[in-house]
Computed example of a mutant assay.
Amino acid sequence: MIYETFGRLETEWAGKTYSEITTIGESDGSIVIVPIGSIEQHGDHLPVSTDTILVDAAAHAGAATVADEVPVVVTPPVWSGLSAHHLPFGGTLSLEFQTMLDTLENVGRTALENHFDAILLLNGHGGNMALLNTAVNTIGAEHTDIEVLSLTYFHLIAEMIEEVRDSEPGGIMHGGELETSLMLHLRPDLVDEERMTSVYAERTYELLLEDLNGSGPLGRYSTFADHTDTGVMGDPTLASAEKGATLYEGVRDEMRKLLGDVHEAIRTPE
């Protein structure tokens, strides 16, 4: 996804030969990262590939910072996720829960046949989070000698988001200040700034999730069409490339720390 901008990447699974991949996998403390996104509407100003572009960038940004010390490789992104709640707007491609779980299990299982010591399922779409918890358990149960992990990238910078944002609560739920800022930094060619609209959705219950970086404990089924006429939930009008650069650097730095910690935890003791 991001290869159009950055060219061939050192950590790119898809650009390596099979022997290069197996050599990385057989190295002590090796890690394979599987970015997982979605293809779904993000309002009129962002492309449907937003989640996939951003999680792919997060994976490669982190991996590139440790590639000299940590044997790590990033697979091509799993580009479709659980996005049925976006279907009313069109442009969305979605998987059923079991189909996506089977897909991640098969991708994970075959990736680990290359002898990696750890696998990180890196998520970029809020609707995938519950399924990733299941996938970690099912993959982990089959590979008890492997470190099996999952993470949603924007949770890494929850505190930074609060420092950087200008929007009110509810301003970064979907296609809002956060995602639009990151896209303005990474792929400004795909952002239509003239079509940005701000939508602060009314909350039915106080315990519902309010922003992407939040942790509202109450779950409730609804489609995005129940909350917004444009597909946006948030305030992209407050986004900027400068904020996006800051947030991207934050993701990169937190990924660097995590991958370093994982590598040290799984290395064979000297």
Results as ranks from 00 to 15, higher is better:
residue 16 K to I: 06
residue 79 W to F: 09
residue 60 H to V: 13
residue 246 T to P: 01
residue 105 E to S: 06
residue 120 L to K: 07
residue 152 T to F: 07
residue 190 L to I: 04
residue 247 L to I: 15
residue 31 I to H: 05
residue 71 P to S: 02
residue 171 G to P: 10
residue 197 T to P: 03
residue 165 R to C: 10
residue 99 T to Y: 09
residue 252 R to T: 15
residue 67 A to P: 03
residue 199 V to P: 08
residue 20 E to G: 10
residue 1 M to V: 12
residue 192 D to H: 05
residue 3 Y to A: 12
residue 121 L to R: 01
residue 10 E to I: 02
residue 51 D to Y: 11
residue 30 S to Q: 05
residue 70 V to W: 02
residue 2 I to V: 14
residue 150 S to W: 03
residue 255 M to Q: 02
residue 202 E to N: 06
residue 199 V to R: 11
residue 163 E to K: 14
residue 2 I to C: 07
residue 33 I to Y: 02
residue 42 H to A: 14
residue 177 E to M: 06
residue 155 H to Y: 02
residue 219 G to K: 05
residue 255 M to D: 02
residue 174 H to L: 09
residue 228 T to F: 00
residue 132 L to A: 03
residue 252 R to Q: 13
residue 252 R to M: 14
residue 48 V to H: 03
residue 45 H to G: 10
residue 98 Q to E: 13
residue 186 L to C: 09
residue 14 A to R: 12
residue 108 G to T: 01
residue 163 E to G: 04
residue 65 T to A: 14
residue 257 K to H: 10
residue 104 L to T: 07
residue 39 I to H: 02
residue 67 A to Y: 12
residue 133 N to T: 09
residue 32 V to I: 12
residue 147 E to C: 06
residue 158 A to E: 12
residue 54 L to C: 04
residue 244 G to V: 02
residue 266 I to Y: 13
residue 28 D to R: 07
residue 140 G to N: 10
residue 133 N to M: 10
residue 130 A to G: 01
residue 122 L to N: 03
residue 60 H to P: 13
residue 229 D to E: 15
residue 256 R to P: 00
residue 103 T to Q: 12
residue 85 H to T: 03
residue 11 T to W: 00
